[in-house]
Design a protein around this nucleic acid. Structure first.
Lengths: 225, 225
DNA sequence: CGGGATATTGACTCTTATCAATGCCCGTGG
DNA sequence: CCACGGGCATTGATAAGAGTCAATATCCCG
């Protein structure tokens, strides 16, 4: 049995609530969106909570995850600046979202987006496209979790992060090993060992735990793709 | 999942199909949707193929999967009668779809939705809802693949199938062990052993390999949920 | 009936998890 | 400015769960 991915203290930290957690009714007449800030590990929304808003990342990195009663956690996605998250089919969030690092987002009222008829049609189409893209990413991730080994998973992860950072060969990982593990369906120890193995192979170099140099992207692609 | 919330009439308007195009194997070229039949294991569409249509299952069961070059396969979903599949963000399918058993589907032209300006926002909205529901299912499946053990996976699978068959305690599995394994990220031998274990526990009874009696749903829920 | 596909069961291996010790980095306070 | 401490990461030893390989068993479908 896979045991707890979160220690008691981690849970406390993860569920710490930052001051202005709830998007309040738009105060400005413009009602474009509501800017909000979250501290590291602060909760943006929780599983089971009422879902009235969609969010766009302005800065920082957000993780979306689901938790089992015994603490096992699966992160379904990390969201970077420019990306949107928080879409729900009904009124409740079925996953939770937290700030990996200090985060700024803009919250848009879901009702405002979908409620009116004509003016929002193009925006709804755009949301549809975004959601289909999210679905595709998630299906790719199913393949990773269901059928790839630890080394392949980490290689794919590094390539994905690199691609989303503009393809740079040096990348700064915002998240700790623990989060990477919960994204890749591994333990943090295994993630650490796979870093060591990629290092050994000469595929990467670690300037620090968080700063990774991708030396041989072809080798990583051979593993991860 | 993905039970269609679309009224027939909406579909008819949105997906008017011109005859004589892909999808192949059309049996009747109605103006509305294209009825098609597929034999067991026949391909409905392939990964990388041009995606011009969305599909609705009329009868049978469809599996959607992705394949690695070395043959490892991950099934992301089984689709039952009434459900829709085949949504794509761009012009290519990023997974393939095959008939698990003899299948009848109706294909609708996708262009009707995103292309024209006339479509009502409420209609696009319904498509969005379907896609978001698909995303939710896929994210739940991530948790299963990333963090649950073999017994839990099979228990959840059986409950899911039961729920989609209307909650009956006796269920007829359309797919072989191999497909279940590729859906659950296991080998067929492990699936077989977990069936034996659930049997041993008294949670299920196998009338045959494909016909399963769910004797103790509570026990299954304790495992799978 | 017979035969191929499908499923079960067994013996053994291997990858990854678990448990545990140590190391490292960085911010804080003396 | 250095020492301390806490969070984070690495590394090691061992265990467990699932995979692999292989031998039957069973079920359809002709």
């Amino acid at each position: 049995m896979l045991t707890s991915a979160l220690a008691e203290t981690d849970l406390h930290r993860a569920f710490a609530v930052s001051p202005q957690r709830k998007p309040r009714a738009a105060e400005s007449a413009g009602q474009i969106g509501l800017a909000m800030s979250f501290a590291r590990n602060a909760e943006i929304y929780a599983e089971g909570e009422t879902a009235g808003y969609v969010y766009k990342v302005i800065s920082g990195v957000v993780r979306v995850s689901k938790l089992l009663p015994d603490g096992r956690r699966q992160i379904s996605a990390f969201h970077m600046p420019g990306e949107m998250f928080g879409f729900e089919a009904n009124e409740l969030h079925h996953a939770s979202a937290e700030a990996v690092v200090p985060v700024k987002v803009v919250a848009y009222k879901w009702e405002g987006v979908l409620g009116t008829e004509k003016q929002s049609a193009s925006f709804v189409r755009e949301l549809l496209t975004l959601t289909v893209l999210g679905l595709r990413h998630t299906q790719d991730h199913l393949l990773l979790l269901g059928r790839k080994n630890a080394l392949e998973r980490l290689a794919e992860f590094l390539l994905e992060m690199s691609a989303r950072m503009g393809g740079s060969a040096v990348l700064e990982l915002a998240m700790p090993r623990h989060d990477i593990a919960d994204y890749l369906g591994l333990t943090l120890e295994t993630v650490s060992r796979m870093f060591a193995e990629l290092k050994e192979m000469g595929a990467i170099r670690l300037e620090s735990a968080r700063r990774v140099h991708l030396l041989d992207k072809a080798a990583l692609k051979a593993l991860g793709a």
